[in-house]
């Protein structure tokens, strides 16, 4: 969902000004760090998975207001979800949950989706090598 407006919605501003779940999960068992090839921004997402559920999630983002807001929103959306449910969340769904993003800022929401996938991949990779008891 994108619009031609240049202004951010109230929801974007809210998540930008009061971002939820900033930081690093202390006992994280999945971490994803991705860069945004479009403009060079960076997001780091850490998750704690237990019984196939994301029980904790935190982010750090270097990027524009939209990148920070989508990062914050994605952490809210995945908390408590199963890995399968979390993987089904698209960048479009994140943008929609924020009431839309300016068209030129849609690529920023891809960063959040990629970081989430990278964190889950990292978790699954670690499980393969060293099953978490």
């Amino acid at each position: 969902m994108s619009t031609d407006q240049v202004d951010y919605t109230e929801k974007v501003m809210d998540h930008y000004e009061n971002p939820r779940n900033v930081g690093l999960v202390e006992n994280a068992n999945g971490v994803g760090v991705v860069g945004n090839p479009t403009c060079g921004d960076v997001m780091k997402l850490s998750i704690r998975v237990e019984d196939n559920h994301i029980v904790d999630v935190k982010f750090k983002t270097f990027g524009c207001g939209a990148a920070i807001a989508t990062s914050s929103m994605v952490t809210e959306m995945v908390k408590g979800k199963t890995l399968e449910e979390a993987l089904a969340i698209s960048n479009k769904a994140v943008a929609e949950a924020l009431g839309g993003l300016p068209r030129i800022k849609m690529h920023c929401s891809v960063l959040a989706e990629d970081a989430l996938k990278a964190a889950i991949d990292d978790y699954l990779e670690k499980q393969k090598n060293q099953p978490d008891q």
């Binding site: 860069g35 945004n36 090839p37 060079g40």
Partner: peptide, 21 residues
């Protein structure tokens, strides 16, 4: 405080050597 790059710089990682794209 919410920048992953700041965290990396404090850990001594040179961000210019890291090819994000």
């Amino acid at each position: 405080e919410m920048s992953p790059l700041y965290e990396m710089a404090k850990e001594g990682i040179d961000i210019d050597q890291f090819n994000w794209g």
